[in-house]
């Protein structure tokens, strides 16, 4: 049996190689990125949506926004085909397509004064393309919001402890944002304070679950939260929320990796079960091209261009 940690090492080497070769090529030859160039966050500073951010906060904001539930659900579903197709698709598509797509969408937006990817499309192609793209974005966002709300409501109803922890976590995120931007707190101290408070929130959540048994009440609550989060300034809620989230996520990944190495665990499922599994709509779904739809955020997702050009470009 093959130990999983070997693939962990192969994955790390693979990503580092692409980061330092293909990534550098894109940065220097394709985009021509220079530190001296002013970003829209500096040019259009308004204290609300355009606020320059520290690079670690920026990293956390982007990763936190794109690596939510999607990269967990997708690969888990894809395990129905066995572990090999998911692993290959994530490694190849992530390094060659997904990361390139996110980076280029962000840089295109930055070059066009921080406008959304639809406006960039209008400038590069035509006005008609812009409006078609805007309608497409509207419908795809409705679909994405609906999918994530259904998933989140299921979690909150199944594990009410999570709801308490998250509701306490939101004011903590705002508190950390205010510490950094209003009181000029050093980032590392703000991070330590935030993470300690989150641990307390998780502990409280485990001991005092928040129980609402009506499905539609939860849907309404989450829709109101979505509106609130979109309405408030980026630096105030979304940025510190994602920034703190990503450190929790990294903590989980690192602990998981350590556990894999120590335990010498091996794969519990076959590398390939069958080319066709009843995965989408309980109908036979061939690995190709269905894997592209099943593992989206974990490998390549067009939604990330909206995150890059709608959230990140102003920071």
């Amino acid at each position: 049996m093959i130990s999983v940690w070997i693939f962990l090492v192969i994955g790390a080497v693979w990503y580092l190689t692409f980061y330092f070769t293909y990534g550098k090529f894109l940065q220097n030859k394709v985009v021509g990125a220079e530190e001296k160039r002013l970003t829209p966050a500096h040019k259009n500073f308004d204290g609300i949506d355009y606020v320059p951010a520290n690079k670690y906060i920026l990293y956390g904001h982007h990763v936190g926004a794109i690596a939510g539930t999607g990269p967990i659900i997708g690969p888990t579903l894809a395990m129905a085909w066995g572990w090999l197709p998911a692993l290959l698709w994530i490694l190849i598509a992530n390094a060659i397509l997904g990361a390139v797509h996110d980076y280029l969408a962000l840089m295109a937006s930055v070059r066009y004064e921080g406008k959304t990817i639809a406006t960039v499309t209008g400038n590069v192609i035509s006005n008609r393309a812009k409006y078609i793209f805007l309608w497409f974005i509207l419908f795809s966002l409705i679909l994405i919001i609906a999918a994530f709300i259904i998933f989140d409501v299921s979690i909150f109803m199944l594990r009410p402890q999570v709801a308490t922890a998250i509701l306490i976590f939101m004011p903590i995120a705002i508190f950390v944002g205010v510490l950094i931007y209003k009181f000029n707190f050093a980032l590392k101290y703000a991070l330590i304070v935030g993470l300690l408070l989150i641990l307390v929130a998780i502990w409280v959540g485990y001991n005092v679950p928040l129980v609402i048994t009506d499905y539609n009440t939860w849907v309404t609550i989450l829709l109101i939260y979505g509106w609130l989060a979109g309405w408030l300034p980026l630096w105030y809620l979304l940025q510190p929320r994602d920034f703190l989230n990503v450190y929790i996520m990294w903590g989980g990944i690192i602990l998981g990796a350590i556990a894999l190495i120590i335990s010498f665990a091996s794969f519990q499922i076959p590398a390939l079960t069958s080319y066709t599994q009843p995965l989408v709509g309980y109908k036979p779904s061939p690995i190709w091209p269905v894997i592209v739809l099943v593992i989206a955020c974990g490998a390549l997702s067009g939604f990330h261009s909206l995150v890059a050009s709608g959230l990140l470009q102003g920071n």
Binding site: P160, A163, L167, M170, V211, T213, I221, Y225, L232
Partner: peptide
């Protein structure tokens, strides 16, 4: 005991939203 339940849960959530906004 040890549960924020139904209507009280909604008050808790409302409080959280007010603290956010």
């Amino acid at each position: 005991p040890y549960k924020i339940y139904e209507d009280n849960a909604i008050i808790f959530i409302l409080g959280s939203y007010l603290i956010i906004a």
